[in-house]
Amino acid sequence: MAEIVLGIGCAHTPQLHTLAKDWDLRADRDRQDGIPLWFKGEKLKYKELEKMREAENLGALLGMETREEALRKSFLAMDRLHEIFVEAAPDVVVIIGNDQHEIFSGMIPTFAVIASETIENLPRTPEQNKRLPIGIELADHGHLPAEHTVYPGNRELGLHIAGHLVKESGFDVTLCHEKPTVKGDHSLLYGMPHAYGFLYKNIMRDHVVQHVPVDVNCWYYENSPTASRCYDFGVAVAKAIQAWDTDKRVAVLTTGGLTHFVVDKEWDHMFLDAMKKHDAETLKSIPQKELMAGTSECKSWIATSAVMDTVGLDMTVVDYQCLYRTEGGTGSSCAFTYWQA
């Protein structure tokens, strides 16, 4: 029987790999009233958001020293997660992530497993960079390789997880025998989604071990699973890994979130506290209106927390940082956590 020995949760915002002075590129975009911003279950215009939050005096947290200190502490936390990963030395990794039209385009599966011996990653083309929102290209070095790179997958475990999910747990998953990608026009070829690439670069530090990408559709709400379904999916993934007939040691990693594109510290601490306390009911009851925009990536954390609850590993928060870029509190919140016995 395989053993799950480690879990890691790590934020993956582009702000982490953007110089503090360049956060204002995105801040200027945030302030445009044509862009909807989700806060406490409401979709707001920027002026409404800033008015709602004026008592918090968030403008006092926008100085360069504050920004740079948040980045410094975030990178120290990621250094610690890297050390923990190296110390655990797992044989195989399962990454629970999400895609944002990076590899799935004409089809959007609710849940997918990539069972391939190799996982290709590659930088964006100049044509792709031209289509990006302002400021995003600056952070590509944080999740994309400088050149075409091939990482080791684990087809045996991928096939086993997919089969077990369908036959034993009642989840109809999409099974990918290779990394999905848009074929034909080279300008449309994409590397792995940033949810995975960030872990390659910042936790495994380009020494990528055999792994299985498991995708949860967080972003496309028409068929995005509920928080409750994500939790149940995590339980099923844990049981599948445990049923793998091998003595391999497995780590389960996730990334994304927490609240963004509007930071909500109160919500984040509720979420972290629920995971620390193994509070499945709180996690399962989070409504969709609170899991919108970038905060939707917390669905991957819910699934990963369920894995850890199932195998009895406890969560430790290494650090939590708020990367504010406007007076309205837009930006990203960053959590850095791990689960071990």
Rank of each mutant, 00 (worst) to 15 (best):
K40I: 05
Q100D: 12
A112E: 01
M78T: 04
I103T: 13
E65F: 02
A89H: 13
P126I: 12
N121P: 00
S105A: 11
W38V: 10
R124S: 03
M52D: 09
K45F: 06
V113N: 00
N57I: 06
M107D: 11
K40C: 08
G97K: 03
E48S: 13
K51Q: 14
V113H: 02
M107H: 15
A88K: 04
M52Y: 10
L49Y: 05
P109G: 10
E117M: 05
E42H: 11
I114L: 06
G34L: 13
L61G: 02
F104A: 05
S105R: 15
E48Q: 15
K45Y: 05
A77L: 00
V93G: 01
N121L: 05
K45L: 08
R53C: 05
E87M: 10
F104K: 03
E50T: 09
E87W: 08
E56N: 07
M52I: 12
G34M: 10
P126E: 08
P126S: 10
L76Q: 07
K43A: 12
F39C: 07
P90K: 09
T110N: 07
E42N: 11
F75L: 03
E117C: 04
Q100V: 09
D79C: 01
G59C: 04
E120D: 06
H82A: 08
P123A: 08
R53F: 08
I95C: 11
A60E: 13
T118Q: 06
G41K: 11
E87F: 06
T118L: 07
A55W: 12
F111G: 00
R53E: 05
A60C: 08
L71Q: 00
A55Q: 09
P123L: 08
I96M: 13
